[in-house]
Design a protein around this nucleic acid. Structure first.
Lengths: 343, 343
DNA sequence: CTCACAGCTGCAAGCGCTTCCAAAAGTACA
DNA sequence: TGTACTTTTGGAAGCGCTTGCAGCTGTGAG
């Protein structure tokens, strides 16, 4: 493997000049720059990542911590982050901390703190204020997506607002028997988001003077299959059936639609369903939803970090609200006329 | 940030001894080891990744190249790889090269070759022999999953065999009008796998003396929504309807089931559907499939690499066939009795 | 009691770059 | 032609570890 020394010799320049020429920083005459680049190309030289990082203190590597890479939101964010990072010449080190607390802790200690990454993006992951301070203390900018990170910069959608909008959509169509499928308690712990969306739902209901019946507040694990099971309980159980379901995620909305179909319920004729996300499968199910462009959020997170790293400004802990888009398809409609015969 | 020097001072040892004590290699007395560890713990010392790598030449980092992190197979493999790597104290650098050729090329050159990773895992990605040799030349073991990698070690399932098994399952149930949904040409290019599965299907059909009708060979992009669209053509079009569909992936099988339901076809009464994968949603749809345990394949890939790195043996380019499991659920059954009246 | 050997330990030489500093070269203006 | 700068350059000191080598200590055998 050729080193920078070889390039310097071949170009007839000093190591220092070659380094400056190739990195683009510092003053180098056009002629030297070209020579260095030519020599490097001819030798097939690539900088040693570690030597470079060790000497400069910069890593060109950002850590991404996600609870899963399987669920829609996370994989979408990762794709957005990945593409943007690659374009900028940065590496992406992935920490999938599905296994729970102890794993999370070790990732933070053994990996993130080891000066390997320039910054970290935490997706839907709750870090304690102490943990965040620990990272900031060693000068590691951190931005959070979809979760509250006290003291750190975050990107988030207006969970309460869109939940209200979703509920209002149903209410305006004439529904009053509306169920809400929220996230399991386990998820609440880390993301806090199920609670926020549920609160938004309740607010909209209250504002409209409608009751939120406890038996219509169900929960699932954010997956299609989990929601499917929950929805079967809700729709097939002995309780009165709602005419609409607002699911806290598209995956859960889809699970609900599948369950409804199993019971011979037509969507939207017998049951309206609305979700939140903008999942690819939305089209197949004609799902009305609120698109939150997870990829875009990932990309934005990277741009934010990079601006903070390259540029001057210590990207102050800004809280950006990412815009969402209401997508009306065919899973919501006016409620069925009352089944009580009219004559 | 405390350095190893601080630890050495505090422990009353030399830097060299501390290094040996903490890394576990070399002879160190129990007493010194304990002192070093205590001092390190008290100072909250963590090794500098780069300095360590630079000096030792080892990175504790493996690169994973995937075409997408969104589709089931890839995210599953990544999860398996991630967990195993984390346990071993390795970082996982993710290269999501969805965007096509030029991106792939740059990843290889700018990232993989930069001595940043100890090894690479290529998932369903076709690398040219030259590219592989390039990696092996700089001593970077490489293992491929789900794709042919001439010269490199690979882990793969018996695509042809399981395709035949799937087809035979249908045939044995009594089906003769069997359609096959394969991957798009675009996928064929990189993975080669659609063709292999299709060949297996055709062989099984031929062995059974059955014809494979061209209009029953459809393709999609391996996603649920893509398969849904294709299946609508197949099932709702003017051609005679098959009584069974063998889809090259579970996601496509699910898309097919959804399309069938749209046309009022009952699965399995009117149409049997079988897939390949072991997708989480299989349960919800009662999908009969062949489980290939993608997570497990990812984990195995890591173990293989690690054995090669730590251990002595230059893990020769072994081609491991990963076992699969036939899972019979409720999406397959005997074909409907002929609709021609019997009297 | 001496010798050979094995286990420990510390010194110091890197690993391959970046970057500070001072010297060399080029520029503009008087 | 000389002065005062502004660019460009090269030397060399690290960045924070690992590890070969040699010295030191302690043990069992001769």
């Amino acid at each position: 493997m050729p080193g920078i020394k070889d390039v310097a010799e071949r170009a007839g320049l000093s190591i220092a000049t070659v380094s400056r020429a190739l990195s683009g920083k510092g003053h180098v005459s056009a002629r030297s720059r070209e020579r260095a680049q030519t020599a490097a190309a001819e030798l097939g030289f690539v900088l040693s990542y570690h030597a470079s990082s060790l000497a400069s203190g910069r890593n060109h590597n950002v850590g991404v911590v996600v609870p899963s890479v399987h669920r829609w939101f996370f994989s979408s964010v990762v794709e957005g982050v990945s593409a943007t990072l690659l374009d900028a010449g940065y590496d992406l080190t992935l920490y999938n901390v599905s296994e729970g607390q102890e794993r999370r802790h070790s990732v933070l200690n053994d990996f993130l703190l080891r000066k390997r990454v320039d910054a970290v993006i935490a997706v839907s992951l709750e870090l304690s204020e102490a943990e965040i301070q620990q990272l900031l203390a060693i000068h590691r900018p951190i931005v959070g997506i979809g979760g509250p990170l006290p003291g750190a910069s975050t990107i988030r959608i207006d969970d309460s607002g869109i939940a209200q909008a979703a509920a209002r959509h149903l209410i305006q169509l004439g529904h009053s028997k509306i169920a809400h499928m929220t996230g399991d308690a386990a998820y609440e712990q880390d993301f806090r988001l199920p609670g926020t969306r549920q609160a938004g739902f309740k607010k909209a209901m209250k504002d409209a003077g409608l009751a939120t019946r406890p038996e219509w507040q169900v929960s699932a694990d954010f997956t299609i299959q989990g929601a499917y099971a929950s929805a079967r309980q809700l729709l097939g159980g002995s309780v009165e059936r709602p005419t609409a379901v607002f699911a806290a995620s598209d995956e859960m909305a889809i699970g609900t639609i599948l369950a409804a179909r199993d019971f011979g319920l037509r969507v939207p004729d017998d049951l309206s369903v609305i979700g939140i996300d903008g999942h690819e499968l939305g089209g197949v199910f004609g799902l009305t939803t609120i698109d939150q462009d997870a990829r875009g959020q990932g990309a934005l997170a990277v741009r934010r970090l990079l601006a903070g790293l390259d540029g001057a400004g210590d990207a102050d802990a800004a809280d950006t609200e990412y815009p969402t888009r209401f997508v009306i398809r065919s899973s919501t409609a006016v409620p069925p006329v009352d089944t009580v015969p009219l004559h």
